[in-house]
Amino acid sequence: MATTFKRLFGGSVPTANSTVNLYTVPTNYKTIIKSFIISNGSASGINVIVRVANTEILFNYILKAKDTIVIPVMDQCLIAGNAITIYVSGASNTNVISCYISGIEALTTDPEYSGVARMGLGIIPSSSSTIVSSWSKERIVKGIILCNTNSSDTEVTMEVGGVRILQGFSIKGYDTILIPTTDLLIPASEVITAAGYGINYYITGKELG
């Protein structure tokens, strides 16, 4: 089948204190992450780092004993060869740390998902800079993940087409937030700019027309 809704990973994290690959996008496919759950069954808190396409979307996050979190992935898109990895420290028995990831695998030629694309990823600089460039077509933004890799609270400013959607918004140290933009339209000639040192971003959207 060209498109499959599937479990991308389900099970325990087998190794502590080293990076573990949970999923890799197959050749000629793109993957849209729909759900990402991490559960800590141990009696103590653990430190978690999750990377998507080598970009941290969860960094030094302390997952409390017996706690479960849902990572706010919001339909983020990965391209062929991209991986989802996890690093867990502070757990004496990694078999009690479990993950469940669901998503859609679609052939890059599938017309239903051909317009779905990763619009940008990386680290927001300290001064305002373009993080999503102009394009030949109009686009809609489906979701923006921001991950603070600093230990201290950090402010973020973000503009879409010159209009501020974040104005000195403070993200707590080592926290991750989702901006649920839900079909925010960007005209072809416009860009997204941002400022906020040490903040990772991951943005997915869809081309129109």
Score class of each variant (00 low, 15 high):
residue 119 M to A: 11
residue 16 A to F: 11
residue 30 K to Q: 11
residue 4 T to G: 13
residue 49 I to Q: 02
residue 192 I to D: 07
residue 202 Y to A: 05
residue 20 V to N: 08
residue 172 K to P: 07
residue 171 I to C: 05
residue 43 A to L: 12
residue 190 E to A: 15
residue 131 I to K: 00
residue 120 G to S: 09
residue 129 S to P: 13
residue 51 R to P: 00
residue 92 S to D: 13
residue 196 G to L: 08
residue 128 S to C: 09
residue 84 I to D: 04
residue 172 K to R: 04
residue 155 E to Q: 12
residue 21 N to I: 03
residue 87 Y to V: 12
residue 130 T to V: 05
residue 141 V to H: 01
residue 34 K to M: 05
residue 36 F to K: 01
residue 142 K to Y: 05
residue 150 N to A: 14
residue 155 E to L: 07
residue 194 A to N: 00
residue 129 S to A: 04
residue 9 F to C: 05
residue 107 L to C: 09
residue 153 D to C: 09
residue 84 I to Q: 01
residue 156 V to S: 08
residue 136 S to E: 06
residue 174 Y to M: 08
residue 128 S to P: 04
residue 62 I to N: 07
residue 113 Y to M: 14
residue 202 Y to H: 06
residue 201 Y to S: 06
residue 9 F to D: 10
residue 103 G to T: 02
residue 187 P to E: 13
residue 194 A to S: 08
residue 4 T to A: 05
residue 162 G to D: 05
residue 115 G to K: 15
residue 80 A to S: 03
residue 86 I to Y: 02
residue 99 C to K: 10
residue 197 Y to R: 07
residue 144 I to F: 02
residue 22 L to S: 05
residue 90 G to L: 15
residue 35 S to Q: 13
residue 180 P to V: 03
residue 88 V to E: 07
residue 111 P to L: 00
residue 83 A to P: 01
residue 67 D to K: 06
residue 140 I to D: 09
residue 76 Q to A: 11
residue 104 I to N: 00
residue 127 S to C: 04
residue 186 I to S: 02
residue 72 P to R: 11
residue 156 V to M: 13
residue 159 E to Q: 10
residue 132 V to N: 09
residue 133 S to P: 15
residue 173 G to M: 12
residue 187 P to N: 08
residue 82 N to Y: 01
residue 6 K to S: 03
residue 94 T to R: 14
residue 199 I to Y: 02
residue 140 I to Q: 05
residue 108 T to S: 10
residue 132 V to P: 05
residue 70 V to C: 02
residue 108 T to G: 09
residue 88 V to L: 07
residue 178 L to M: 13
residue 140 I to R: 07
residue 166 L to F: 10
residue 40 N to I: 10
residue 68 T to D: 07
residue 163 V to D: 10
residue 2 A to P: 15
residue 61 Y to F: 10
residue 108 T to P: 03
residue 197 Y to V: 09
residue 73 V to L: 03
residue 62 I to H: 03
residue 103 G to Y: 01
